[in-house]
Structure formats: C-alpha cells, structure tokens
Design a protein around this nucleic acid. Sequence first.
DNA 1: GTCTATAGGTTGATAGAC
DNA 2: GTCTATCAACCTATAGAC
Lengths: 188, 188
Amino acid sequence: MASTPESRDGARTKEQILSVALELFITKGFEGTSVRDIADALSITPSALYYHFKGKEEIATSLLEQRRHELDELTDWIKAQPRTADLPRVAAIRWIDHATPAQIQAMRFAGSNRPFMQKLGEKGELLRSGFASVEDALLPPKSSTIERMRIRMLLDTLGSALRAAEGTDATFEEILSAAKSAASSMTI
Amino acid sequence: MASTPESRDGARTKEQILSVALELFITKGFEGTSVRDIADALSITPSALYYHFKGKEEIATSLLEQRRHELDELTDWIKAQPRTADLPRVAAIRWIDHATPAQIQAMRFAGSNRPFMQKLGEKGELLRSGFASVEDALLPPKSSTIERMRIRMLLDTLGSALRAAEGTDATFEEILSAAKSAASSMTI
DNA sequence: GTCTATAGGTTGATAGAC
DNA sequence: GTCTATCAACCTATAGAC
C-alpha cells in the first residue's frame, strides 16, 4: 500500500490510465473510443490525460510497447535454437505457455484493432507489426507464401482461442489449453 | 453491357457503393472510414449516399445481409445431418469448400471490425452475430465452454487463414487450402 | 497533476434546388 | 439521383489558471 501514489476516487497514474484505455480499446475499438470516453471512465477531464500522454495514439502505442520485450525475448530464443522443421510449432507453444494475462489483453487489443495495427506497422519501424520479428526469425531465407502462412497461423493460435472465448466464461487456463491443443495438432 | 445502368465516371448503383465501402471498411475499419471517404472514392457527394442508404451503419449491415443466406444455408444443412462427433469439422470444411470471393471479403470485413460486429450482435436479433446460428446448430443442448470454443475455432479457420495471408501474395486457392488443412488437423 | 475554457477540425446527417 | 449549403454534435488538442 505504501508506494501507491494515489488511492482517491479517480484513478491517476499512467498505469491506471493505460489499464482503463486498454479495456475500452478492446471493447469499443481504438477509433470508436474517444479521449473523453477514457477520461470519463477515470473520472478526470481529457486535459489531464494530455499531461501524461502526447495524444490518443501514444496511449495505444504505450500499451503495445509494454509488451514489446516479450516478443523480443521470443525472437532471441528462436534465434538461439537449431533450425528444425518443427521449430515454428515449438515456438508457438512456448509463446502460449509463457503467456500472462497482460499479454492476453494486449492480444485482445490487437485483435480488436486490425486496421489500426496495420497503420502502425506501416509507419513505424520502431514498433514493427508486433509478431513480424518473431515471424522473420522463424522463416528460412527463401520461404514460400504457404510457409509464411503456416507460421502465422501457428503463432495466431492463441489469438484464435481468444476470439473463440469471447462472450463465454472460459478461464485463462481453458483458453491457453485450447490454443495449445490447436497449435499442437495443426498442419498446413 | 446492355443492362448495366451506368458506365460514366462515378460509380452509382447500390452494388458499386457497397463494393467501395466494403474495401474501405476492411482497410480503414468502419469507425475509421467516414461517409465522406466513401463518397470521395465514388466521386460523388455524401448526400448522394443518403439517397441509397439511411446512414453509414445501414451500408455496413447491407453488406452483411448480402451474405446472410449462405450462413442460413449452412445452418440448414447442418440440421439435416445426423449428429456425429465429427460434424463440426465436416461443417467447417464444407464452409471452406463453398467459400466465394464475396464471402471472403465479408469475412475480412468482420475480422477488421470486431467491436462493430459485437455491437451489432448485441442490438439486433435480426442479424445475429454472424456465425451464431451455425454455432448453435452444431452445439448439443448441454455443451461445455470448451466444446463451444472448439466449434468456434473450427469455423474460424478460414478467418485465420485470411489473417495469415494479409500482406502476402497468397492466392484465393492457397488461402482455402491453408484453412482446410488447419480445419482437417485441428483438435482441442 | 488537474482544472476551465476554448480553438479548429471532422463527423454523420438533413433541407431543398436542380 | 445528385448537387450545394448547412447544421449540431463531436472530436483531438492546447493555453493558462489553480
């Protein structure tokens, strides 16, 4: 309790803002969520948000940046492995096994905002398109479109399970389990 | 050529409007696409659109309505089958085998606009949430969350292949093939 | 760190002429 | 059917007081 900066009515820290914004971006979409929506949910005014973030887009990119190192870690791990035919599947399962609730929420965000994610991918090398570096690490130099698709589908198994769980009472564990089974069995 | 109503510069028929709107909704998202964007792409003014449609949302729902009967057909087919354990997979493969480019585009739309689709599902029994009726037809009366997820993931295999094909030069056939392989092998 | 006030732009949609 | 003209509502973002 000691170090929590604020405990009053409205939530205030950057983390609290990000948490509320993430929830709204998932349910209403990035474009469908106004800065006012976020501020209202926090019981503050929009202006207060601009003290913490340069703009609405920076809130979203911060959200993604938080998860960036987990993708980097996976990429590094992949690069350290001997390249076997089954490496993509093993990597996908590793990704699922290491998934945290925070990662799950970020994936929900990405899944709910495909046009926005693509726009980000186009204009920023900094962030790249999320899984792009993982994908590249898994792809042999000269790979076919089919091979790329296979890898993407394997990596997206968790995303599929997430979509399948929408509106149900599926637990975190059930989602991971469903994703893992799918990744384990999937062939192209 | 004879019966095409208009061949001048701007596109005009309802179908042409829907086609242009669909493309924009896929790439920029429903909320990220303004009525002006659509009108501009057609070289007409926004007002002209309101002669054909009551509003922006009706353009989107018309798009989905066009594909409604294909889902109804699948639902009917499922109901006419003996209920075997593998029926969900067989239905998913049938769905993939019968997919047309128009259906693919509609699926892209749905995949790019999850928050919008969910909003529609909440407020309209008329249209229901797309695959909901198919899903219900496949589900035994008392089914577990896991069973529901399995069915959704099977039905969403085509959607997964579509996402995996984004930005690649994958052909229509390659996408269907990838989806089919995944549906054929997937277990939960 | 949050507020009030407000700027400047865009949005979805309508009225009415042609 | 499409246009011009226009609207009220909403948007993101800023300036400056507290």
